[in-house]
């Protein structure tokens, strides 16, 4: 069984609000495929054979242009016994996203997918602590079962 870590997307961006639509899409296709655009009878894309795609679509819906800045400021303070990680949100940041995707992509093999997604403060909190983030990702259900 072929196992592949498809991708780790780390996206911290400041142009999109909570009501925007993000679509994470993963697809396999074998055969003929034609895709069309509105008001155009000619196919915009035509593929024959095997095609595999992993796409994250993040449309920007800010009404006014927003100047990109560092999305998160992380400060680490170490005392005698503790290490405190503080996360300061940038006011210009409207949203944070962290997602991990793993799948079995062997053609003809049984489908197996594992997807993790964190948004907003949940994402920024994870991003502030690399060790915690690594721990969460590697111990997710299914992520350590050899896939």
């Amino acid at each position: 069984m072929k196992k592949t870590m498809i991708g780790m997307l780390l996206v911290v961006f400041g142009m999109s609000g909570c009501t925007s639509h993000l679509v994470f899409l993963e697809e396999d296709h074998f055969g003929l495929k034609a895709q069309f655009e509105p008001n155009n009878p000619a196919p915009a894309e035509l593929s024959l054979g095997y095609r595999r795609g992993v796409v994250a679509v993040i449309p920007q819906q800010a009404a006014q242009p927003v100047k990109l800045t560092n999305s998160v400021t992380v400060a680490t303070e170490t005392t005698a016994s503790n290490t405190v990680v503080k996360v300061y949100n940038d006011p210009n940041e409207l949203m944070s996203l962290y997602t991990v995707f793993r799948a079995n992509v062997g053609f003809g093999d049984p489908v197996e997918v594992h997807h993790f997604l964190a948004t907003g403060t949940a994402a920024t909190s994870l991003l502030a602590n690399e060790g915690e983030l690594r721990n969460v990702v590697t111990n997710l259900a299914g992520f350590t079962s050899g896939k």
Binding site: C18, T19, S20, H21, L22, V23, F24, L25, E26, E27, D28, H29, F30, G31, L32, K33, A34, Q35, F36, E37, P38, M95, A103, P110, V111, E112, V113, H114, H115, F116, L117, A118, T119, G120, T121, A122, L140, A141, G142, F143
Partner: peptide, 30 residues
């Protein structure tokens, strides 16, 4: 917008629309 002939499989994950502060896990094996 799409015509397919043959085998096709796709997985789509939409953004949680109501609340931006979420953690979600999807683990699936056929």
């Amino acid at each position: 917008g799409r015509i397919t002939i043959g085998f096709s499989r796709r997985l789509a994950v939409p953004l949680p629309a109501e609340d931006c502060n979420v953690v979600q896990i999807i683990s699936y094996s056929e």
